[in-house]
Design a protein around this nucleic acid. Structure first.
Length: 880
RNA sequence: GCGAGAGUGGCGGAACUGGCAGACGCGCGAGAUUUAGGAUCUCGUGGGUAACCGUGGGGGUUCAAGUCCCCCCUCUCGCACCA
């Protein structure tokens, strides 16, 4: 007996059909209502897609197919964020040009997407490395430059010698590079910066305009980190021409300031440090610069610092306050200097306690001997502020400082300007010329794009010189205007650049005269639904909002925000199997001792042996290779008796827990794979992949196939279908399924929508043969989830063309009313009986029937209920 | 440490404003039909012999609590000296 539902044949057939008939091509008719649904486009990595990736893509595919059937003109595009380090790393190792690697990877990704049956309009495909795209990325940079939002600055950067490049703060974790885990040191360097801080307030305020998950909004607000306070100027004893600016959010505590602290990088240090303290200070600064963040972290916040020998004068009392240097003050926040109020700031309290500095209480309400009191209260020991509650004290002291010219109200942000240069090859060159006189100018728009020079060797130079600098004839040019010698900027843009505006290019991807036409932008923007991982909660989403706002100010886009609604699909995780060994250097010839996870514990961030404290390294066994001693005991395949630890974590090659969608599709088909990923649970929730559950959804598809095609094998016979709408029960189930599935899709509740389709297939033929109307309705409801099977069934039902543009089914609400209903009867809130009553029963009818119910009477035992609660058409509760 | 979210059968998960806890699926059990298939169908499946007990634990509000209030525990994810 052959399998009736041949997913291979059906899926191949319809994917071919869709492509041949261009059914997903965007409709140029701009009078129709539009819906722009966007996936965060992927970086086409060499590993290809694993089953964790498609979850969000499948969800948008379901939703966009649904919207299309609802009559919307849907824009659902896909493209490639194709610049990036891995292709360059691969080029360094193998000499393969990143362009070739990228092209190959893109082809593989496109093939995988197509095999998933995605409804993308491939004619709108974008590749950020395409010169036709790079041109406009550079053009937008030019706009930023012209607006004064791009500037060169000497800033301390994260230099990673192993990668030969500078990394953004976000790419450094615990003092190591996020990619590769190489050590990172801080070095000053001349860099392009983008003035995102100029938009700080709007990046916070305009969050009110978008429908995003609350946690993401909060993360963005915190990242921008606006805080209001005052900057106060302190004169320095014996240096009348110098003063120190500090920023504080608690100017009301100014009378509690007992010392000042400068960040180790503060520029005033060399001026004010006394001869006696000079050596100690220099030594401290040197020490701090060598200390990685990781070491700081391990110290658990223990304060360190050194006295400069200098004193500042309190702006009100003129008391001499010692000036210290400590690394708990950050150079990059506020003014890099603080007034320390140990009584009311935890960090200052710790520091003052350690170095025996005075602590003066100036806000009542806490116990200063036990720790800092950081709450609000009434000012004390504070001269003209005494008796004032904190908010008034703040306002008052700011007024006083402003009058005396010793300070002013001010706002500080955690957000810093965006470091925009990378010393890499595989990125967009910055369209800038450096002239002899030290000035810079843009490459004229007519000369864009500035393309990458061809290189034979992609290795970083290892010096503070980008790989592009090696291409001498590319770097050395003549300024087309002045005919003077000039050099090209040899930096490239960070990977974020391309993804900052791709959603605009999708509106008009083939445009050659401009980045996008105003008409296309006007029609398609904003993105109605944007779906992608929460890992981009701050960086990508903040950067692209920033660019968008600049473009908005220039009148190039018509909405202040690019993404109306945002959704973060949860990650699909994998089971991986872990043990440890002591081969820290990965030496293949070393003699290695292995340990099970039970022997290992964590010391700060490092894995160490529970007893010997020897440092160990985690190792993983590929899931397929695990030897199962019994069903709960995974063991190492070769090291006898080594029990592995089962961990659920993000899928990655290094963990050996990757499931390839190609394999799943080959076995169960795309429709089953899509259905499984949507059925796993709520979209936003992460869950481990479990291949065991796929046969379940595959069975459902087979049942659906047989339901429509009939039980007969070999040939399709639809003779079992009846023409009418069937029994009232069948009509109701059909209407109810339309209602429920529609509502669930609207709410992105795909798992429950699928369960309702399952109920339909199970129950629709209980009372009689399948009515044609129910069959067609069901096929249309199934279409967004299992589009290939649905198309096949639709065709078999006698339709000549694809169902992609069929109207979404509707229902007659009158059909929903059942002829009777079950009313649960409770006694004291506990379910005791149920009665079946006609649907149109009144309250009195129901109560009368309830009181007559035999089971209930037993429970009442002749007592008269003290109270009877009736919930309309829901339940009756007798309270004794 | 701070912030956010989540704890429901053997498992993934349902349950709109408080109103029949466990939809649907996996797994498991029984049967039917079969006899080389990862097949199909039907029935059953929270625990307990029962009364009863059951949504992380403990209190509370209510006729009625997974849902509301208070306290506590655990897990996951962000942030981490931001003055």
């Amino acid at each position: 007996m052959s399998q009736a539902y041949d997913h291979h044949a059906i899926e191949a057939k319809w994917q071919k059909y869709w492509q041949a008939h261009q059914v997903f091509a965007v409709n140029p008719d701009t009078t129709k209502p539009k819906f722009y649904i966007l996936d965060m486009f992927p970086y086409p990595s060499g590993a290809g897609l694993h089953v964790g990736h498609p979850k969000g893509y499948i969800a948008t595919d379901v939703y966009s197919r649904y919207k299309r059937m609802q009559g919307f003109n849907v824009l659902h595009p896909m493209g490639w964020d194709a610049f990036g380090l891995p292709a360059e790393q691969y080029a360094i190792e193998t000499g393969t040009h990143p362009r070739d690697t990228t092209r190959r990877n893109i082809e593989n990704f496109r093939r995988q997407f197509q095999s998933l049956g995605m409804d993308y309009d491939w004619s709108r495909e974008i590749d950020t490395t395409d010169p036709r795209y790079v041109k406009w990325t550079q053009w937008i940079f030019s706009k930023l430059y012209e607006c004064g939002l791009a500037y060169l600055a000497e800033v301390p950067v994260n230099w990673c010698p192993a990668l030969g490049t500078v990394l953004a703060n976000e790419e450094v974790q615990d003092g190591k590079s996020e990619r590769g885990g190489f050590p990172v040191v801080r070095v000053p360097m001349r860099q392009w910066m983008l003035r995102i801080t100029a938009y700080a307030d709007r990046l916070i305020d305009d969050l009110d305009l978008v429908d995003w998950p609350a946690p993401i909004k909060k993360m963005q607000r915190d990242w921008v980190g606006r805080s209001e306070g005052a900057s106060i100027s302190f004169e320095i004893a014996d240096h009348p021409q110098h003063s120190l600016e500090v920023f504080t959010t608690r100017p009301d505590t100014v009378f509690g300031a007992t010392y000042l602290v400068l960040a180790p990088e503060h520029s005033a240090i060399s001026t004010i440090t006394t001869a006696a303290q000079h050596n100690e200070v220099m030594q401290y600064i040197e020490e701090v610069s060598r200390r990685s963040d990781r070491v700081r972290l391990a110290e658990g916040g223990e304060k360190t610092g050194v006295f400069t020998g200098a004193f500042a004068l309190h702006p009100v009392t003129n008391v001499r306050l010692p000036i210290w240097i400590a690394d708990y003050v950050l150079a990059t926040y506020g003014t890099g200097a603080i007034m320390a109020v140990p009584a009311h700031d935890t960090r200052d309290w710790d520091f003052a306690t350690k170095f025996a500095l005075p602590i003066i209480e100036v806000v009542a309400g806490g116990d200063i001997s036990a720790g800092a009191y950081v709450g609000a209260g009434t000012s004390i020991n504070s001269d003209f502020l005494n008796g004032k509650p904190t908010p008034q004290a703040k306002t008052h002291v700011i007024e006083w400082l402003e009058q005396k010219g010793k300070g002013k109200g001010s706002v500080s942000y955690k957000l810093r300007d965006w470091l925009f240069s990378r010393q890499r090859y595989w990125g967009e060159p910055l369209p800038v010329l450096h002239l002899d006189d030290g000035t810079t100018k843009l490459v004229p728009e007519s000369d864009l794009p500035v393309l990458l020079p061809e290189l034979d060797d992609f290795k970083p130079t290892g010096e503070f010189e980008p790989p592009l600098a090696r291409a001498r004839e590319w770097v050395e040019v003549t300024d087309p205007e002045t005919k003077h010698k000039a050099v090209r900027d040899a930096n490239t843009m960070p990977q974020w650049a391309g993804s900052c505006w791709y959603y605009l290019r999708f509106c008009d991807p083939k445009q050659t005269e401009q980045a996008w036409s105003p008409e296309a932008e006007q029609y398609w923007m904003p993105v109605d639904l944007y779906v992608g991982g929460a890992e981009h909660a701050v960086l990508h989403l903040l950067y692209s909002r920033f660019w968008h706002k600049v473009l908005y100010d220039l009148g190039l886009v018509h909405t202040p925000e690019p993404f109306k609604k945002l959704l973060n699909p949860g990650m699909i995780l994998g089971y991986s199997y872990r043990y440890y060994d002591n081969n820290l250097s990965d030496d293949p010839h070393a003699s290695v001792t292995t340990y099970p996870a039970t022997d290992v514990c964590l010391d700060a961030e490092t894995s160490v042996h529970r007893e010997s404290r020897e440092e160990l390294k985690a190792r993983w066994v590929c899931a397929q290779d695990v030897h199962w001693k019994d069903k709960d005991t995974p063991c190492h395949p070769t090291y006898e008796g080594l029990v592995l630890e089962e961990v659920i974590e993000k899928m990655s090659k290094s963990r050996g827990n990757v499931v390839n969608p190609d394999d799943v599709i080959a076995e169960y088909g795309t429709d089953a794979m899509r259905l499984y990923e949507m059925f796993m649970g709520p979209l936003e929730k992460g869950a481990p992949w479990s291949s065991d559950s796929i046969p379940g959804v595959h069975r459902f598809l087979q049942r659906a196939y047989r339901l429509i095609m009939g039980e007969q094998e070999g040939h399709s016979s639809l003779s079992h279908l009846i023409g009418s709408t069937g029994t009232s029960t069948q009509a109701r189930l059909t209407a109810e399924t339309v209602r429920a599935v529609t509502q669930d899709i609207e709410e992105m509740g795909f798992n429950t929508a699928i369960s309702k389709l399952m109920v339909f297939v199970r129950d629709i033929t209980r009372e009689g043969p399948l009515p044609r109307n129910s069959a067609e309705t069901f096929v249309l409801l199934l279409a967004p989830f299992a589009p290939h099977l649905a198309e096949e069934l639709w065709a078999c039902l006698g339709h000549a063309s694809s169902l992609v543009h069929e109207p979404w089914p509707t229902y007659d609400p009158a059909c929903l009313t059942p002829s009777d209903m079950t009313i649960p009867l409770q006694v004291n809130g506990k379910l005791r009986s149920k009665i079946l009553v006609p649907a149109e029963s009144s309250k009195d009818d129901i109560l009368r029937l309830a009181r007559a119910d035999e089971k209930l009477l037993e429970w009442l035992q002749g007592q008269t209920p003290r109270k009877v609660i009736y919930v309309e058409n829901k339940l009756v509760n007798f309270v004794l």
